[in-house]
Amino acid sequence: MATSCKRERSLLSHEEYGVIQASHHPEIYDLDLSGLEKLRSRLHQMRDKEKTLARQKQREQRGKAEPRGASFPGTAEQPMKRKQVFASALKRLNKEIKRTRSIEARAANVDAARRALAMRRAANFPVYQASGDTANEGMNPRPSRRRMTKVPGQRIGSISQAAKVAQARRDSRR
């Protein structure tokens, strides 16, 4: 079950709530990846401290341990609730870190794909080096053996037209 901000404020001290508030919606987006990592380590410490206090209080209630200090009265419920607040803040923070890293990875993949495409396009048009000076004159051209015939435009199609006219004459004689 999610804990409301008002409930969190009632369970935590002012300094602790300031740390937790940085893991909520608008403020969490203001932090960069290194800031998120620092906040995560701070929240880990706070959660572990509450977990230790809650376990100690449970052991005291069962009679397995001596009371640990006079300034920690009450049951184990209060530290468990505080631990849950820190754990939910850690969960939000881990999601944001994962989201930020996936955005960075996606951007890196897009950059790599663009570079690969540029390299592939560059490979389609290779640049050849000049052959440099040659020892002789090189290859000699050989003249083509094919006949060079030019047909005037008016003759193109006139043969087939003549065949049509001749066939028409034969058909009309019958």
Rank of each mutant, 00 (worst) to 15 (best):
M148R: 15
L90I: 02
F125I: 10
L39K: 05
D48W: 06
K98H: 09
L31D: 04
E104C: 00
L31M: 13
R174S: 05
E50K: 10
S88K: 13
D32A: 03
R146L: 03
Q78L: 13
R173Q: 13
R82Y: 01
L43A: 05
R147S: 05
Y17N: 03
S131G: 02
A54Y: 03
K64L: 15
S88Y: 10
E60V: 13
L117H: 09
Q58H: 03
L43K: 02
A54Q: 13
P126I: 04
R62M: 04
R47C: 07
L53K: 09
A113K: 11
D30M: 08
R82D: 08
L53I: 12
K150N: 06
R68G: 03
R82V: 14
D111L: 08
A105C: 02
I156V: 14
K64F: 11
G69Q: 07
A130C: 08
T52Y: 02
A166W: 00
V19D: 07
M148W: 01
E66M: 06
T134C: 03
Q61I: 05
M148P: 02
A135H: 05
R120I: 05
R99V: 10
Q161S: 08
S144N: 15
I103W: 02
R121I: 02
A22F: 01
R99S: 06
P26A: 10
A123V: 02
K64W: 14
E60C: 09
D48S: 09
M148F: 06
P79F: 13
A54K: 12
S131L: 07
N124A: 10
S41K: 12
A70D: 10
E37Y: 05
D30H: 13
M139T: 04
K64H: 13
S102P: 01
Y17Q: 01
A105L: 09
V19G: 00
E104R: 12
Q58N: 03
P141W: 07
M80S: 08
K81M: 12
H14E: 15
G132Y: 10
D48Q: 08
L39Y: 05
R169K: 11
Q78W: 01
L53M: 09
D171N: 15
V151A: 06
R101W: 15
A163C: 06
M80F: 10
Q154F: 04
P26I: 09
Q56L: 07
Q161G: 07
N140G: 00
P79H: 13
